[in-house]
Write a protein that binds this DNA or RNA. Structure first.
Lengths: 188, 188
DNA sequence: AACCCCATGTAACGGGTTACATGATTCT
DNA sequence: AGAATCATGTAACCCGTTACATGGGGTT
């Protein structure tokens, strides 16, 4: 149940409403943990009920009021406890790998389009991450030296960049392999 | 719902019982898709009810009888259809990244142990994958040339190897970063 | 005697996804 | 006029996880 903790981290970095959190989960923290607004509202309500979060109703003009959440003392303690609990190194859930193995029982050539789509998607993400890295950490406008929080955000982003680069290289390998086995014909 | 399809692929590669499938999901296909036996039995029953699988009761001596499942015609068609449906490039779910960002609000040094544990786990997996690669695909006892199915299994395994190598390198980066920010003291 | 392996299951719970719903404001 | 943005929610469903249950056979 790491959504709770992802929300705690995000609210410690910056308090905000459920709606704002939902948008952060589309970028930034969402690069390595996803959540929809329905989930977020549900969890915020529960965490508030458990005393982990404080709420403040913020009236706004020209927009609906919002509830600004921030981390309460017990929430901070819960995060600290979680940081001390070991977690299991996670295993992959990779649909595309299942498809690739499944292609042996169908038409491997039909997968080329799909793999190319994924290749484009990952290239797009990589470009996006690199732009963010330059903007926030390595570019001319970025703060230097970085504080501890920024260093940690940066190393997480470097992980995302490494992941996308690795994935793109692997998808190239997959495409090459698909071409190789289809070139020699279905009977080989 | 890719568990269904992972099961179809695995049963096409080799028919087997729920128990055998559960063990395959601890290695092989389990490298990129996990499932417990409870899940597998539930899904097998449903898929059999839907006519996607055939069952054969196999009596055994000295062991409980088993139900050997194999893919029926409609199951093969369902897999072919799924292979044609585009899937979304998946997003990561990376607890450790959440922890790393969260460490900014606690003690970053306390994470070193945890990161080292993950490093060891991934190194172990890499060694395991490399042994499998040598045994099945590149070593002296491996078949050559590989058929299409083997080529596809190999490229998926290369993906796992690339993932573990990338992860290990990133964890080195994380450790270095943690040391750097703790060396300069909590107030920096 | 204790424990692991083979083999199959049920039950309960919780998290994630999808669909639906509301309503004001701002932009094209 | 229509679409997008801000903002919050309910409801239903499915999937995954955890715990519990059974029972024979082999191993230490």
């Amino acid at each position: 149940m790491a959504l709770d903790h992802a929300i705690l981290v995000s609210l410690l970095e910056q308090p905000g409403s459920g709606y704002e959190l939902a948008r952060r989960f589309e970028r930034s923290i969402g690069y390595f943990w996803t959540a929809t607004h329905q989930q977020i509202y549900r969890v915020l309500k529960r965490m508030e009920g458990d005393g982990l979060l404080d709420v403040r109703e913020v009236p706004q003009q020209g927009r609906p009021d919002k509830k600004e959440y921030s981390v309460a003392g017990p929430g901070r303690a819960a995060l600290a406890q979680w940081l001390r609990d070991p977690i299991e190194p996670e295993s992959l859930r990779h649909d595309l790998a299942v498809k690739i193995r499944g292609a042996a029982f169908d038409d491997p050539a039909a997968l080329v389009r799909e793999v190319e789509r994924h290749h484009r998607a990952h290239s797009g993400r990589l470009a996006h991450y690199l732009a963010g890295e330059s903007r926030d950490f390595t570019g001319p406008g970025a703060p230097a030296p970085l504080d501890a929080g920024q260093e940690l955000q940066h190393v997480v982003l470097r992980g995302g960049i490494a992941y996308e680069r690795m994935t793109i290289a692997w998808l190239d390998d997959v495409l090459e392999t698909l071409h190789r086995i289809t070139a020699r014909g279905p009977g080989a």
